[in-house]
Simulated scan of single mutants.
Amino acid sequence: MNIGEIARRSGVSRSTVSYALSGKRTVSEATRRRIQEVIEELDYRPNAAARALKEGRTRTIGLVIPPAGGRLTYMQLEFVASVLEAAARVDLDVLLSPSGGDHDRSFERIVSGRRVDGVIVMEIRLDDPRVTTLQRARMPFVTIGHTAQAHEVCWVDVDYATLIGRCVDHLADLGHRDIALINRSAELLAAGYGPGHRARDGFTSAVARRGLTGVEYCCADDAPSGEACVERITATHPEVTAIATINEAALPGVQRALERAGREIPARFSIAGVAARHWAEEFHPQLTAADVPALEMGSIAVELLIERIAEPNAAPRHRLLAPPISLRNSTGPAPAYKPII
């Protein structure tokens, strides 16, 4: 039972319930009694985390997002939306702060100025200086994604290695012997972008385990780059009959390039990947994919952060999610290889 349900049954707002519980603002005696009656009826007991938050200085958490100059992917926007929604359910405000490039001063102000009670950080690198900064400042924080030192911090992440491995297994079961991985950009990989490295590891391992031929291509996060990437694949490795990918933003371009090359999906070419459900369902035909549970991940991140604020010395908790592959229409039996002239 949460504050929202108490508010609904009491006929008041969530903030009124929060004020009645915390005593931070005056609530009329009649309203307070009505709220208390509902609480007793529901046997509601605020947990330790909620009690700790009532004593917080700001009732605000920070969400560190990629630089404002770059366009957020649909998945990144879902992370932002889910954090905002989960925070609102527990009467918390969210301060958005870009980091990277010329925006690091915003992140530094959040940490040094103690403008928030805790921080959620997105787009984590294997070796991420933001994590080190937060650890040194003793600021409660949670990451969406995890560093190479995963045991040291609280995080929620998708198991990209396992999921890409499952995509390869699915394609291999359909008879595909030559498979390409479309990863994220070379710049992100060079910077230590965790999902890209884990997808590479999962792909390499699965290809070796199944005795397949695999090639990897890096691709920027946009449709034109997806087109160019597929053009390179069909030119340099025409024997490839299937793609596994984690680059959802490139999918529209991948689709256009395959159509232009005469690689009908799934009759002459198959594609599977890890993507936000929106991108999977917008692909034509719909993409066989592990749908990243971005909304669930943002909610989990807020939950973990509240716990961290309440008990900063508790052992870090981790959530690694591996959603099932949703079989849609973009994969089919491997065709006999015939060079396209």
Rank of each mutant, 00 (worst) to 15 (best):
298 G>Y: 03
230 V>R: 05
108 E>T: 13
63 L>S: 08
264 E>I: 12
260 R>D: 13
28 S>W: 04
312 P>R: 04
51 R>E: 10
299 S>L: 10
31 T>F: 03
223 A>R: 06
100 G>A: 09
138 R>P: 06
313 N>A: 15
308 R>A: 06
143 T>M: 08
298 G>W: 09
256 R>A: 14
180 A>D: 11
86 A>R: 07
128 D>L: 09
242 A>N: 05
335 P>L: 11
13 S>G: 12
102 D>E: 15
254 V>H: 00
312 P>M: 11
273 G>Y: 01
48 A>M: 12
260 R>K: 14
22 S>K: 03
190 A>V: 05
81 A>Y: 12
51 R>Q: 14
211 G>W: 10
2 N>E: 11
254 V>L: 11
281 E>D: 15
207 V>T: 11
146 H>M: 06
195 P>A: 09
179 I>Y: 02
282 E>R: 14
273 G>M: 02
84 L>C: 12
37 E>K: 12
178 D>A: 14
98 P>S: 04
139 M>L: 09
116 V>M: 03
82 S>Q: 01
278 H>Y: 14
244 A>D: 03
281 E>I: 13
129 P>S: 09
85 E>C: 10
112 S>F: 09
332 G>T: 02
115 R>Y: 00
205 S>F: 01
201 D>L: 13
280 A>V: 08
100 G>N: 02
152 E>S: 13
35 I>H: 01
301 A>S: 12
168 V>I: 13
311 E>H: 15
299 S>N: 09
210 R>M: 09
47 N>S: 11
321 L>Y: 03
35 I>T: 07
255 Q>W: 12
335 P>V: 07
7 A>C: 11
280 A>E: 07
115 R>P: 08
137 A>V: 02
241 T>I: 04
15 S>T: 13
177 R>F: 06
278 H>C: 02
288 T>I: 05
2 N>A: 10
140 P>A: 02
89 R>A: 15
212 L>F: 02
154 C>V: 00
337 Y>M: 07
267 A>W: 08
43 D>T: 13
137 A>R: 07
228 A>I: 05
139 M>D: 02
255 Q>L: 13
32 R>P: 01
152 E>H: 05
90 V>R: 04
245 T>E: 10
221 D>H: 14
36 Q>C: 04
276 A>D: 13
143 T>G: 06
119 V>A: 03
101 G>C: 11
62 G>K: 07
34 R>M: 06
131 V>Y: 01
157 D>R: 03
291 D>L: 10
162 T>M: 00
160 Y>C: 08
206 A>S: 15
302 V>N: 09
51 R>D: 04
122 M>Y: 03
172 A>I: 08
220 A>C: 11
199 A>C: 08
179 I>W: 00
121 V>I: 15
160 Y>Q: 07
23 G>N: 05
182 I>E: 03
239 E>Y: 09
